[in-house]
């Protein structure tokens, strides 16, 4: 069967780059990290296999408090991004046409023309003690001394929401665009109030977009390192910060790997719960 053989060969050749990418860049490092995380250091260059590194995490309140805090701050950032992003996406998708639509969409994209580092420094210029907001408040007479707005949870939240907004708006605009205007008009015709239409027609339709936007924003926030560290300062207590210090500062790769796996487990669990709660399937959401 030369024809089948050839088509099968083509198939494997086409598949090869994907497999190479999956195996070398995703599976191998994770397997390696998992093995490292199971090594217990008992002496210089002496190791035993066991779960001691994971036990360290559960026995040290600072670690799991930071872990929990990272989780709920990320969830809060996701919810905030959704609440701000939804009206923006609705406006872009339903209330504007043609040129205005493109312009507004581009404006959402503009912050991403510079690196995350530059964007975050931009916020620092605005929020720091000698920064723009502080000076304006003093000039307006609303404050009589410099105000420090950096290095607190609100600053972290602002940074996270700002960084992730695009990833919420794009899937929302796509799903809302596909909602036929006549469905909304029929709702008004049938006597529904604006709120009822939003709740019973617009949101059910936009659900796949909402879920995929939330998954992306949540994962970006959970795995973010730069924004929490720069805007939150040394009190930021972000879990990625702990992983960094285990690997780089304390050179404790074993504990760092264990932390990495815990973070992977956390994000998978929360995404799974989110999908179950919204009755969406991962396949349907990703196809969006």
């Amino acid at each position: 069967m030369p024809v089948t053989d050839r088509s099968r060969l083509t198939f494997y050749l086409l598949l090869a780059p994907l497999l190479l990418w999956l195996v070398t860049l995703i599976i191998l490092p994770h397997v390696g990290m998992f093995l490292v995380s199971l090594r217990e250091k008992v002496g210089v260059r002496e190791y035993e296999t066991g779960f001691a590194n994971y036990a360290v995490f559960f026995n040290e309140p600072l670690y799991w408090n930071t872990f929990a805090r990272t989780a709920y701050m990320s969830i809060a950032a996701t919810v905030l991004t959704l609440l701000i992003g939804f009206p923006i996406a609705y406006y872009i998708a339903k209330l504007t046409r043609g040129r205005t639509k493109t312009t507004l969409f581009l404006m959402c994209l503009i912050p991403f023309w510079v690196s995350e580092l530059v964007r975050t420094f931009g916020w620092m210029i605005l929020l720091r003690e000698t920064g723009v907001f502080s000076n304006v408040l003093q000039w307006a007479g609303l404050a009589d001394a410099p105000v420090e707005m950096l290095y607190n949870d609100a600053a972290i939240m602002v940074g996270l929401v700002y960084t992730s907004m695009l990833f919420m708006v794009v899937p929302l605009v796509t799903t809302l665009d596909s909602l036929d205007d006549s469905l909304i008009e029929a709702g008004y015709d049938l006597g529904a109030s604006g709120f009822a239409i939003l709740r019973e027609i617009v949101i059910p339709h936009a659900m796949p977009g909402i879920v995929s936007g939330c998954i992306v924003v949540f994962m970006l926030s959970l795995g973010n390192y730069l924004t929490p560290i720069l805007l939150g300062g040394k009190d930021s207590l972000w879990f990625t910060g702990l992983i960094y210090s285990q690997f780089i500062t304390r050179f404790n790769w074993e504990l760092g790997s264990a932390f990495g796996f815990l973070l992977l487990g956390l994000s998978s669990t929360i995404v799974f719960i989110g999908l179950k709660l919204s009755r969406q399937s991962l396949g349907r959401t990703m196809a969006q």
Binding site: S182, Y188, D189, L190, G191, H205
Partner: peptide, 30 residues
């Protein structure tokens, strides 16, 4: 007056049925 206060009912070109509702719920919605 708002559409709902005009005592009218409209049939749309593309029917404007709600895809996530059953036929019964669509008819009962108003």
């Amino acid at each position: 007056r708002e559409p709902m206060d005009r005592d009218i009912a409209m049939v749309f070109q593309n029917y404007a049925l709600y895809p996530h509702m059953s036929v019964y719920d669509n008819m009962a919605y108003g």
